[in-house]
């Protein structure tokens, strides 16, 4: 494995306790991603896509194996260290947009910056820029309940990129969108990948997403069955 990889997984296995026994969701995964990739995990439901994204995003711990982000093993990280890693390096986009309903669009996008303790004036510049990237600068003061699904997912994108993370993990980001909006989203993400050099890792069933991917990794029953660069 080369050491200048952004993400490295080495013999990663994940088992969940189920009843008295265990269920192996991922077994012996070896993978690496370099900076600027636009890659996706595909595979049937239950194949382990979300589980793998959660491990890389430090939302969950692997049972065995090593996961390195920027060369640092995150396997034994504390809750605080994992939180810091996510805060500084990783952005998330979810299937259900998961905006905080009581806050405005502006405040939703601002939140990751508040966690980073960035001063208010700097935050303003960054939030407005992020909203401009996704073309939503004019709805900054609306509430999530007042906008459409496509707009909400664009807000979620703005929120994930506002702190300019190295990695964005997108778990089925288009699953709730019609095709017009799905394409719009993928165009935005592709642009961000090309212009800002952010590394993207998707999970998807959606052929519209797969069309955009530059690398497709197929999972089945927790194992990698194919890994091809287009």
């Amino acid at each position: 494995m080369s050491t200048n990889n952004l993400i490295e997984l080495h013999q990663v296995t994940k088992r969940f306790p189920v009843g008295d026994g265990e269920f192996t969701a991922l077994s012996d995964i070896n993978l690496s991603f370099s900076k600027g990739e636009f890659a996706g995990l595909i595979g049937p439901s239950g194949s382990g896509k979300t589980t793998l994204l959660n491990l890389i995003g430090a939302l969950d711990d692997s049972t065995e194996g090593e996961i390195k982000i920027n060369g640092k093993n995150i396997a034994n990280n504390s809750d605080e260290a994992s939180a810091l890693l996510r805060n500084e390096h990783i952005g998330f986009i979810f299937q259900s947009y998961n905006l905080l309903p009581v806050y405005t669009i502006y405040e939703n996008v601002e939140f990751p910056l508040i966690l980073q303790k960035i001063p208010k004036e700097d935050r303003k510049i960054m939030v407005l820029q992020a909203l401009e990237w996704v073309g939503l600068k004019d709805i900054a003061n609306k509430k999530p309940s007042q906008i459409s699904g496509g707009q909400a997912q664009r807000v979620a994108i703005a929120r994930s990129i506002v702190k300019k993370p190295e990695i964005i993990l997108a778990d089925e980001p288009t699953a709730n969108l019609d095709s017009e909006n799905a394409y719009k989203i993928m165009d935005i993400l592709k642009n961000l990948n090309e212009e800002l050099g952010i590394t993207f890792l998707f999970s998807s069933h959606d052929s519209k997403v797969i069309k955009y991917l530059k690398r497709v990794i197929s999972l089945e029953d927790g194992k990698i069955i194919n890994d091809e660069v287009k």
């Binding site: 995003g57 939302l59 809750d79 605080e80 939180a83 990783i90 998961n98 939140f111 990751p112 966690l115």
Partner: peptide
């Protein structure tokens, strides 16, 4: 729960 999950994903620790 959703709010907490989002905040965790954004990089807040459970303790925080």
């Amino acid at each position: 729960y959703t709010e907490f999950g989002i905040r965790i994903a954004m990089g807040e620790s459970k303790k925080a």
